[in-house]
Design a protein around this nucleic acid. Structure first.
Lengths: 201, 201
DNA sequence: GTCTATATGTTGATAGAC
DNA sequence: GTCTATCAACATATAGAC
């Protein structure tokens, strides 16, 4: 809806895009409406035509977009993994997919905003992150139960194991993005993850 | 050094304590020097006597204190864990210790500031978090190698396993503190961790 | 819808008396 | 060391012409 390419909508989208970028890189409070208007190339007053409630309405809109856009699109199977090594390899490529998703500019910015401006958001607005991770856990658990490689796995074991695997992924992602400020997928990261997967499978 | 109870030092400490609390709860940018001065009960100008470079010097001082105070004081052993169940129990109590450490007011505030104001800090200032976690990994790995319960564990296995265990802990702590905004240790959290430990041991 | 001009309050920081 | 008074800059938001 209202996704049409109207000139006015383009202004609205421009403001949202610039804001998302600046909120993610400089922080919400440190980003002034003047900076947004200037970078978006729009006049001072116009912002309040599209967002009558001002700056905070922009933030809410961004995070809400983040929620609805982030439907899980990951697709994979373990059915063709006949050796433990192949299974490990498959999980590594799943990690790379997840990492890549977090690098996609809009996702990255929504992630950073969600973490850094948590106190300005509702529990619901921040919850999308947990939902995304849980979704991945669910998918991995489902596949684990049908993986030909491992000894037949009970429902009661697949779920915790899937959680552990996602914890391994999540730790690396959070450490790199939030602490080390690094967005490059390095061999060092993969060399760290591989033995961890190996030890739990 | 300079920990003496001089009147002036008390003023300095008061400003730092109030600032740490406010930076953690409201964010650095959203906290004004006026709020700090008022809450600390000190006059407008006095802040610049103790911190000539202003607001940012306070932030730097807080984070630097966070680094040097956070020497790892965790002590434990697996030598008396004769069954897998006892080992699991021991790891659960280690988790509770870590959780408790993150709840200690000063640690909690330093943690929140480090995450939320990451862009205002140097890599070095943010690095203490990784160091603390790595320290725990090291301790657990050392103990795993001498645990009577498990089949004798090679150096090459203990390290990844210890990393996995800490990943499990870290995921829960980050999810609760950063996303769910929860500081209470619930049974739900423990019930989630236990089967995960069980599946990797 | 888009613009310019401006109101109103707040910010971090300084000067200088005591 | 501690205070009061104040500055210049900047913030968000609004009014109103086009």
């Amino acid at each position: 809806m209202s996704k049409s390419g109207t000139k006015s909508d383009q202004h609205r989208e421009k403001i949202l895009g610039i804001s998302r970028e600046m909120f993610a890189n400089k922080g919400y409070e440190a980003t002034t409406t003047r900076m947004i208007n200037q970078a978006a190339g729009t006049a001072e007053g116009l912002m309040y035509y599209y967002f009558p409630h001002g700056k905070h309405e922009i933030l809410d809109t961004i995070v809400y977009q983040g929620i609805i856009n982030r439907v899980n699109q990951l697709q994979f199977t373990f059915a063709d993994c006949l050796t433990k090594d192949e299974l490990e390899q498959r999980l590594m490529s799943i990690f790379e997919s997840i990492w890549l998703a977090f690098q996609e500019e809009e996702n990255y910015q929504s992630f950073m905003i969600t973490i850094h401006e948590r106190m300005l958001l509702s529990d619901d607005q921040a919850g999308w992150l947990l939902q995304v991770l849980d979704g991945i856990v669910g998918q991995i658990a489902t596949q684990l139960k049908t993986a030909p490689t491992l000894q037949p796995m009970s429902e009661k074991q697949a779920q915790p194991l899937a959680r552990v695997i996602v914890s391994i992924f999540q730790k690396v992602i959070y450490d790199e993005l939030l602490i080390k400020n690094n967005r490059q997928l390095t061999e060092r990261m993969k060399d760290q993850i591989r033995p961890e997967l190996s030890v739990v499978l």
